[in-house]
Design a binder for these strands. Sequence first.
DNA 1: CTGCAGTCTGGACCCAGGTCCAGAGTCAAG
DNA 2: CTTGACTCTGGACCTGGGTCCAGACTGCAG
Lengths: 134, 134
Amino acid sequence: MDSLSIGQLAKQAAVAIDTVRYYERSGLLAPAGRLASGYRRYGASELKRLRFIRRAKALGFTLEEIASLLTLSDERDVAKVKQTAELKLADIQHRIDELERIRSGLKALTAACPGHGRAEACPILNALSQESAS
Amino acid sequence: MDSLSIGQLAKQAAVAIDTVRYYERSGLLAPAGRLASGYRRYGASELKRLRFIRRAKALGFTLEEIASLLTLSDERDVAKVKQTAELKLADIQHRIDELERIRSGLKALTAACPGHGRAEACPILNALSQESAS
DNA sequence: CTGCAGTCTGGACCCAGGTCCAGAGTCAAG
DNA sequence: CTTGACTCTGGACCTGGGTCCAGACTGCAG
């Protein structure tokens, strides 16, 4: 072990083979070492890095941000890592706020709609049709 | 008034001209009437419909769902309109839940990170690198 | 040695929801 | 009539994050 084919690497990191190659193409992973045949070979550090990427993605980071995090990690720049995480946190919060705004609008409309009767009495259709709403 | 060029329509609905044509292409708006020159002409009902689309989009509906809402509106099917809104509400709620899950993970990490010192002591980097995390 | 699974490449394609373009024709103010 | 703003068309392009493909080659079990 400690010498993995792309298929084994992908399986152990729980990503698709094409995704590994895509990450290499887009600079997120360094070009892999090759066998004489041209087959890629990976070691433990690449597996670790790939898992790092997967976890960061689960935390809502974009691939571009992950590339930056990996650089900062290599540079051991803890301050900037923390700052990046805080910015992402603020970004996530904004998205939550926006969705909650939408949710409260929808909640009010569905709660007010009897679900039967004249279309003219449906608050949902009225809200969408009315001149006044923003 | 009551006869609008595509530019006037777009302006009054606060939408780009290309977007109006795109909506027509994708069936969200019926093919517009034309002048002898081929220029599109619109009336008040198209303006209303376009605004409906814009408001529904602000409530988080996709264009496909909006097409469906418009059909239901034309059919005056209040029950299905309400059901569509409730499904969308559940969808929004799922997205909020997911983002809140991410937020709490990020919050814990940034709170625990001193923002300086050894990289090995940075909980953010550790969480992303560790074997244990999912 | 055979046969099948794995891997290689470059490039096309997917999703949604548009946006932008060139080249041609049109409308309206002055 | 001229000029500038508007509109027409079909099609290409954009973002992000992959996914899929054909055709060729390789690795390994039996």
